[in-house]
Computed example of a mutant assay.
Amino acid sequence: MGKRFFIPAILLMLLVVFQAQLWTGRGSISSVREMEQRLSVQLAKNTLDQASNDQLAAEIKDLQEGLGMVEEKARSELGMVKPNEMFVQITP
């Protein structure tokens, strides 16, 4: 009678241990959900950063290829005015 009780008790204990690990352990369901959320947030951030990197790469290429982009940047950001030009500012 002792062996008949011993094996099912061990199996039941193992089942309880594995279930506890599934619900509260390192690879638990809640832990996996949290990691999936963090992954989706990181993927969205990576997409935005990639778009920003592509824009900067295009600007670098334009700056390396011609002076038109340099002049445009100087006019818009630094207020460059060529000789014999008149600067006019219109306020709404």
Rank of each mutant, 00 (worst) to 15 (best):
Q50A: 05
Q64C: 07
E72H: 08
L67K: 08
M69Y: 09
Q37C: 04
E71I: 15
P83W: 10
A44V: 05
Q42Y: 10
Q42C: 13
A44I: 04
E65Y: 07
Q42E: 11
S40H: 06
E36L: 13
V70K: 09
L67A: 13
L48R: 03
T47F: 05
E77S: 14
M69P: 00
L48K: 04
S52Y: 01
T47H: 03
N46K: 12
E77H: 14
L39V: 09
L67H: 08
G66D: 09
K82V: 08
G68Y: 13
E59N: 05
L56T: 02
E85R: 03
E36M: 12
I60H: 02
E65P: 00
D62F: 02
K45Q: 13
G79W: 06
I60A: 10
A44N: 03
K61S: 05
L39C: 08
G68N: 15
S52Q: 06
Q50N: 07
M69T: 07
G68A: 14
K45D: 07
E59H: 03
A74L: 15
A57L: 09
K73Q: 13
L39G: 03
L67M: 13
G66N: 14
M80P: 00
A57N: 02
Q50M: 04
A74V: 10
L63V: 06
R75C: 12
S52E: 07
R38P: 00
E71V: 15
L67S: 12
N46R: 10
N46C: 11
L78R: 10
D49V: 01
